[in-house]
Structures are given as C-alpha cells and as structure tokens.
C-alpha cells in the first residue's frame, strides 16, 4: 500500500476532473461556449504523451549504455502508452476543432506535429517488428528512438514558435489564462494534468509487467 499512494491520487484526481470538469462554473465565451471544458481532457493528454515519450527516450539511452533487454521492454511499452494517449488527444482535439473551428482537421502546425508524432512512433513499431533478434532489436530501436525524439522536439517545440497557429496562446490568439480571470479553471486544470499523467504512468507500468510476464512464459515454454 505504501508504494501505491500515487495510484490512489491518480484515481481521485481523474474522478475529480470528470465530476468538477463537467459541473463547475466555467467562463462564458463566444464560439467556445461549453466546449471550454475540453481543456481538462484534451490538453493533459499531450502533457501525458510528452512525459511518457520522455520516459521512453530515457530508457532507450539507458538501454544503449547498459545493453539490458529490460530497458528495451520499458522503452517500447512507454512508446505504446504514448501512442494511446496521443490517439486520445487527437480524438478530443478533433471533436473540439469541429465545434470551434468548423472542421475535424485543419492546417495547423500543432496538428501537423501530432500527426508526425504518430507516424514516427508507428515507424518505430514497424522497425521493431522487422528485426527478430532480441539484442539487435533493442539496440537499433533505441538508436532510432533517440534520433526520432530529437527531431520531434524540434518539430513540436521550435517550429510552432516560428509560425502562426489557431491554438489559444499562439498567433495572437488569447491564451486560456486570459479567459480564466478568477482562476476557477485552474482549480480543475492542474489536478487534471497531474491525474492524467499519473494514470498514464500507471497504464505504462501495467503494460511493462504484462510484457515481462509474456516474455517469461515464452521462455518457459
């Protein structure tokens, strides 16, 4: 129980996010209206994705330096979990875009970044699938993961700063901090971010355990 306190926090915070996110008062804004509540679900997904992809990168670097197969399992499962939250982020974002911008998909640097992230990690899984030997796969996938993550950071962090975006806080659009003058939204938003990140990490640890059991039973057979 002592080790699992953060799982309890994750459940409580996510529950709070769902209840408070749908019931609490939000600023009335034109165009956005009630869809402003999507802030508690859409934005934390990207935070969780970047966190878990960073975990993946970290274990890839570790795997290269100690050539331990466990780091490879952790890195690949982190990437899988990252794709899961990334897909959720795309779905919530797409719904939001339909209501506020009028289309499921628009030409925007951040949307391109999300799409490229998915493509890069799908390519990573294809690369993993095409190498049979375990040690070799671990090493080569780690090299690609590091290479891809750095290019991704450039794409997600630097390029959007150089061009306009439809997203709040970019290209002259007001950010959410300007709508949320009495800080009511922050009361839900910050727990939401922590809750979703912790939940993602929990899913990731479960995946790692499952994968280890799978490999173990394979060896036993």
């Amino acid at each position: 129980m002592k080790k699992n306190w953060w799982k309890i926090i994750a459940v409580l915070f996510v529950l709070y996010t769902i209840i408070a996110g749908f019931l609490f008062k939000v600023p009335a804004q034109p165009i956005l209206h009630e869809t402003i509540r999507n802030l508690y679900f859409h934005v934390p997904m990207w935070f969780s994705m970047m966190t878990i992809l960073f975990v993946s990168l970290w274990h890839s670097i570790k795997g290269l330096s100690n050539s331990n197969i466990e780091s490879d399992i952790v890195a690949s499962q982190a990437a899988h979990t990252g794709m899961l939250v990334g897909a959720l982020g795309l779905i919530t974002g797409s719904l939001w875009a339909k209501y506020t911008w009028g289309a499921w998909w628009v030409a925007d640097t951040k949307l391109n970044g999300a799409a490229i992230t998915m493509l890069i990690y799908l390519a990573y899984f294809v690369l993993r699938g095409s190498i049979d030997e375990e040690q070799k796969r671990a090493r080569i996938a780690a090299v690609y993961n590091i290479f891809a993550y750095v290019m991704l950071i450039v794409f997600l962090m630097i390029l959007p700063r150089l061009s306009d975006s439809l997203h709040p806080g970019n290209g002259g659009n007001p950010g959410f901090n300007q709508y949320d003058l009495d800080s009511n939204m922050r009361l839900v938003f910050y727990p939401a971010v922590i809750g979703w990140i912790l939940l993602t990490v929990w899913i990731f640890t479960l995946r790692v355990r499952l994968e280890k059991i799978k490999r173990k039973t394979l060896i036993d057979e």
């Binding site: 493509l119 890069i120 390519a123 690369l127 190498i131 049979d132 690609y144 290019m151 450039v154 794409f155």
Partner: peptide
C-alpha cells in the same frame, strides 16, 4: 540492419525528415 530494408528506408525517413 533489418530484413526488408528498402521499404523500411522510406517509412523510417519520411516522418523524421518532415521538420527539415
């Protein structure tokens, strides 16, 4: 290093070439 290398070359390079 992989078995079907020419197809993989395109799959691996396109997404990471996009920023450039």
């Amino acid at each position: 290093k992989t078995s079907n290398n020419f197809t993989l070359m395109a799959i691996l390079s396109f997404p990471i070439m996009v920023p450039l």
